[in-house]
């Protein structure tokens, strides 16, 4: 009952709100200052979907990390965050920094209690979980980018899908005739 494992987790639970709060702060610091104040101030989740997603999902993710085994909620929450970061003006490492900063936050919060209570093993185990979280985020990031590339590639055909269906007899997916012309292209009708 009073094993170091339980004590460590109990400590995290007790300081959960503060940790999540600091994590959110650190995650938001990747945006310009004027934007950060908006992300924090505007509470309406329809007026501020980025801020709302970050605060909701980081909270969910931390909850998942605390529980013994994670649920389907974890990939869903990570997806929600990564999906946003993947279309914003970030390099891949900046986009995923939302997750890597958690280690920093934890280190600051836990440095002393870990040393005082001899929780090094538990702490390392928890850090491993954060590493796994980062890996999961990386996989999802790549999936989002792949989806974006595919959407981009398909659009040229989708824009003239009816013409392709009728004139070429396909939806254009394998047809060079449908690629790249966009609305500025020429369809002679022949």
């Amino acid at each position: 009952m009073n094993a170091p494992q339980d004590q460590f987790r109990e400590y995290l639970r007790r300081h959960r709100d503060k940790i999540v709060h600091n994590w959110l702060d650190a995650a938001m610091a990747s945006y310009p200052e004027d934007t950060v104040s908006f992300l924090k101030r505007q509470k309406d989740r329809f007026a501020n979907p980025v801020g709302a997603t970050l605060s909701r999902e980081l909270d969910n993710i931390f909850e998942e990390l605390l529980s013994e085994s994670s649920t389907q909620q974890l990939p869903q929450s990570v997806d929600a965050v990564v999906r946003v970061r993947a279309v914003q003006d970030f390099s891949p490492s900046q986009a995923l920094q939302v997750f890597t900063v958690l280690k920093d936050v934890l280190r600051r919060q836990l440095d002393r209690p870990v040393r005082e209570n001899g929780w090094q093993a538990q702490y390392r185990e928890f850090e491993d979980k954060v590493d796994q979280l980062c890996m999961l985020a990386f996989d999802i990031y790549v999936k989002c980018k792949e989806q974006l590339w595919e959407l981009k590639a398909r659009q040229a055909q989708d824009r003239v899908s009816y013409l392709l269906r009728k004139y070429v007899g396909t939806d254009g997916s394998n047809n060079p005739a449908g690629s790249g012309s966009g609305a500025g292209g020429d369809i002679s009708g022949e």
Binding site: P32, T35, L39, V50, Q88
Partner: peptide
């Protein structure tokens, strides 16, 4: 008007 533009809201670019 500052925070009413969908491009600001979505991009976070001031």
């Amino acid at each position: 008007c500052a925070d009413k533009c969908h491009y600001f809201i979505g991009s976070g670019d001031p």
